[in-house]
């Protein structure tokens, strides 16, 4: 079984809000110095889902990531988790693409890799939270799509997928190949350790540019963007917090209860 996982490198979403800065003119987020970017939360779970399938059915995992800078780091992270190969998709023409542009580039790379049974993406990225690339990519590749999976099994050349819902889940059966977007409920990703870290650090990660994957310049032209960002702002929110005290924490709790009962 060959699984291709699309992953994205993002600003660490767990940074304290005070460190979060934007450039409203450039409509960009300014990464805080000294905080290394990380693999997007749900993308890491997608790698985990791929690893679980590989644990069970053997086969191969290929990881691709589009982005500027050191995206090879997140691919190495995925390889340390259990992926076999990885490719970086990097070209000035790939920068600031919308969901359609991103899906187009990923689709070109996947078509070049070929021979896959399953494509996995995170449910949405931890930065722009768009949640569209997977569905557009499936349409480009002409394969079925299931979103927000919390469990994936391969049974008799078919995929049995649990899709998380607000008040439960549904069980779906999808053909191979399909594209599945993975949700957090799939469970914690494994920690890379031992030999895998060695393998990952030594792995050569090829970089593919637009011409390597046959991407047409017109498809990457920002003038053809489906959606554009016209403004970016950080919400001003500051509530005055009244601290409830007492001689002991227990007394503070009593005082808090007395205040809250009046509000109820």
């Amino acid at each position: 079984m060959h699984t291709i996982v699309c992953i994205k490198q993002v600003l660490d979403p767990e940074i304290p809000p005070a460190k979060f800065k934007i450039d409203p003119e450039g409509k960009k987020v300014i990464p805080p110095p000294g905080v290394p970017p990380v693999i997007s939360v749900f993308d890491e779970r997608a790698v985990e889902a791929a690893c679980r399938l590989k644990d069970k059915h053997k086969g191969k995992i290929t990881v691709i990531s589009m982005g500027p800078g050191k995206v090879a780091d997140v691919i190495k992270h995925a390889i340390a988790m259990g992926a076999d190969d990885g490719f970086v998709l990097q070209d000035p023409a790939f920068e600031n693409l919308d969901s359609f542009g991103t899906a187009y580039v990923l689709g070109k790379a996947i078509q070049k890799i070929g021979g896959y049974d399953l494509v996995l993406c995170g449910r949405y990225s931890a930065d722009w939270n768009n949640g569209q690339v997977g569905s557009i990519l499936a349409e480009i590749l002409g394969i079925s799509v299931v979103t927000s999976a919390c469990d994936i099994e391969a049974v008799d050349k078919k995929l049995r997928v649990k899709r998380i819902l607000k008040d439960g889940y549904e069980v779906l059966e999808a053909p191979m190949p399909s594209l599945i977007t993975v949700s957090g409920e799939i469970g914690l990703p494994r920690l890379p350790a031992g030999m895998r870290l060695m393998i990952a650090s030594k792995k050569q990660i090829p970089v593919w540019k637009a011409q390597d994957i046959g991407a047409e310049p017109s498809a990457l032209d920002k003038a053809n963007a489906h959606l554009e960002v016209t403004g970016l702002s950080v919400p001003a929110r500051k509530t005055e917090c009244e601290f409830v005290t007492g001689n002991t924490p227990g007394e503070a709790a009593d005082n808090l209860a007395l205040k809250l009962v009046k509000l109820m």
């Binding site: 601290f243 503070a252 709790a253 808090l256």
Partner: peptide, 19 residues
């Protein structure tokens, strides 16, 4: 605490049973 209206700074283990 920057979004809370009321707060207690303490270990929850000492606050919750009393609360």
């Amino acid at each position: 605490f920057s979004v809370a209206h009321l707060g207690i700074v303490a270990d929850f283990k000492e606050v919750l049973p009393a609360l």
